[in-house]
Amino acid sequence: PGLLLAAALDEAEPGQTILLLSATEGADAFVLRVGDGVRAARGGPTVRAQLAARQRLGYGRYLRWRGLLDVQGPARPASPAPAAPPMHRRAGWKYRLEGSRCDACGRVTTPPGRVCASCGTAGSGTAPVSLRDRTARVVSVTRDHLTTMPEPEVAIVVADVDGGGRLSAYATDVAPADVAVGMAMNPVFRRLWTTDSIHNYFWKLRPAPADAAPGKDTADGQ
């Protein structure tokens, strides 16, 4: 029902009425009036566009990612479970992908710090700057065959963010072999790994719409 409602709102006009009816395990009916701000609220691709660009996912991969099929672990120690205190201290970086802009030289440091990574100025005062809605260009690619993810390999990229800043992150929604230097990518908040039933989330990079390759398998399903 939620997807059907989202698809209807993609095409609805202000003032129209939408009836949402669910007849599974009982019956629920919702009558909604489309508000004047519906067009301004459309900030991403439509449901129809996402369905048109969907990528085939093998059943075995789906089972691995959902934890329904056990696979041999990687040849490296398990990643530590995330802890609340450091996540709270670095909330701006972890959840909002904020870097710090140096007042002395204007360059962006990532992760944010009190010392500028470019000019070395300390304590000059740094302002947070959000990188989550910007495009990053790949400058280096490494294919990891010892990943802690339930995949045979993943791509780890270093990318320069438009406007300043550099990110090192996993590539997602793309096959590792298809990641290339110069590719435009956008940050997306995804699950990295799970240790002791505790999920760790951070930002990955996926191809920008112009560089995406529909029809190819994704690198992961998270």
Rank of each mutant, 00 (worst) to 15 (best):
A136I: 10
V139T: 15
A117V: 11
S168H: 06
R191T: 15
D160T: 04
H88K: 04
D160P: 00
S140T: 14
E153M: 03
G113I: 06
F189E: 12
T147D: 12
C116W: 05
K94S: 14
V158E: 02
D133V: 07
G92I: 09
P86N: 12
R96C: 12
C119P: 07
A169I: 10
A184P: 01
P152H: 07
P86V: 13
A122C: 05
G120P: 01
S124P: 02
S168F: 08
A180T: 15
P86I: 14
A171E: 09
P152E: 14
A127F: 06
V108L: 04
P82H: 08
G163H: 02
T121Y: 02
D173Q: 13
V157I: 12
A136Y: 02
C102D: 10
A184D: 15
G165V: 01
A175L: 14
D144R: 00
D162P: 00
W93R: 03
R101A: 12
V181F: 04
S100P: 02
I156D: 03
V181L: 06
V161G: 00
R137L: 12
Y95T: 08
T172L: 04
C105I: 14
P112Q: 06
V138W: 02
R101D: 10
F189M: 08
A81F: 01
E153I: 02
R191N: 13
R90E: 15
